[in-house]
Computed example of a mutant assay.
Amino acid sequence: MKLRILLLLGLYISFATYGQKKTKYESFKNELTQKKYAPEMVLDKAMNYTSQNDIYVSELIDACRFFTSDRRKYRICVNAYPKVIDKRNFFQVYDLFSSFSFAMKLYHNTQANQNVISQIDYPNADYYHGIITNTCKQPMSEYQFNNLYNKRGNRRNYTVNDLKDIISHNCLSTAQIMKLTEMVQSNGERFELLQFSFPYSFDLENFYYTEQLINENYLKQRLIRFIDLEITKINNQPGYNNCLPLSQNEFEYVLKSIKDERFSKERLQLAKQHLERNCFSIPRIRAIVNEFSFDKDKLDILKVSFQNCPEKDQFYKLKETLSFSRYKREFDQFLLNN
């Protein structure tokens, strides 16, 4: 009799806890649907909820669907990962991203590091394909950075000016800048140093990770707004091309994913998504175009791929992928217009 009562009590507590969690999530979800909030406010609410509450993968996927930007989905998923209850299902999250590089980056900064215990989540710049500046095109190697980092016996003796001097003479990853910033103690000095360091970071879109180093909410929000503003300025520069070419393995994955689509409509849509979000050379564009049979589809792909092609002066060579004179003339006109 006692055993039955204990079992019933245990079931009651479990259901009550689950019901409470679902109520909390439903309340959070209702907040996201409120049109009165600006997009930045919706993102802040998602980041706050996922950092403070346990969450199932299905709920995380549901929450991410309120955002169209891969970068924002990525930030939420990385932030939520420590609180995910059913981590064995986390692989389902990768399908949220239209850009393969974001899915790969999420894996390397979550499941690939799940055995590493750290209070700070450092971003991985190895698979970064976001915006960069002309002042920092290749970050310092980890070997060089470790030599620099351990150069002085007592690293606590570094002043903000010492660290500014080091950072301004090098190109660093965001993770490396974060490790240097941790040498100063106050939130104010960290905020000052991070603002100064932004132009010297290679993986600029990973710079949002630095908010972990600021404990004061006011300064944290100022830092996030500063990063948003700086990235917007870079994107709005005339003629700025904010993409880097995929690695060979990444390109092979993209090509295979296009080939694996059974229907031409879905294959065309997937190809366009990749071409809109990544840089492709002339030979790689040709390889993608050759996966299609009809000139109409080929021409659509060529038009989409032009914007992010780093070899625009050679783009005319892709005319040979078209068979019919009508589409060749349209291709010529497109090049003249652009």
Rank of each mutant, 00 (worst) to 15 (best):
N146P: 01
L32H: 00
E250G: 01
K24W: 02
N124E: 11
L219P: 00
K45A: 07
Y49G: 10
A271I: 00
L302W: 03
I231H: 03
F334Q: 05
D203Y: 00
F324S: 11
K220Q: 11
L213W: 00
K29V: 11
S27I: 06
T23G: 14
Q269D: 14
Q333D: 10
L318E: 04
K24D: 14
M140I: 13
V57C: 04
L180N: 02
N242R: 11
L106C: 03
N338W: 05
L268V: 11
I285H: 00
K328D: 10
R284S: 06
Y143N: 00
N89V: 04
E311T: 04
K303N: 06
D228V: 04
Q195A: 06
H274N: 12
E230T: 01
I177Q: 01
K179C: 04
E192H: 03
C64T: 12
Y122K: 08
H274K: 10
L336Q: 11
K36D: 13
L213C: 09
L9V: 12
Y56G: 08
Q20N: 12
D300G: 05
L180C: 04
K137V: 14
N150L: 13
Y127W: 13
K45N: 07
K73C: 00
L336S: 08
Y240C: 01
H274V: 03
Y240P: 01
R284L: 03
G239K: 10
T50D: 07
N215R: 15
S98E: 09
Y158D: 10
